[in-house]
């Protein structure tokens, strides 16, 4: 574990951007993937189901 300050700073400065882009890509693919549409529609309407009792 011998990181000097320069290495850590260089890592921090450059990789943040890559993380941001990679994560954005993953999330967008997931959110916009056509076959997920049905599940999301079901999920957003699920809170209106009869909800006075736990499910079986």
């Amino acid at each position: 574990m011998t990181f000097d300050h320069q290495t850590l700073v260089a890592f921090s400065k450059s990789w943040g951007l890559f993380y941001l882009i990679a994560l954005a890509a993953v999330v967008l693919v997931y959110a916009l993937w056509p076959s997920n549409r049905k599940r999301f529609d079901r999920a957003k309407n699920s809170i209106f189901n009869k909800d006075d009792r736990p499910g079986d």
């Binding site: 999330v27 967008l28 997931y30 959110a31 916009l32 999301f40 529609d41 999920a43 957003k44 309407n45 809170i47 209106f48």
Partner: peptide, 12 residues
């Protein structure tokens, strides 16, 4: 009484 406008947007 209305579902959330865009579920995808909420995930993003």
């Amino acid at each position: 009484g209305r579902p959330i406008f865009s579920y995808r947007l909420s995930i993003i």
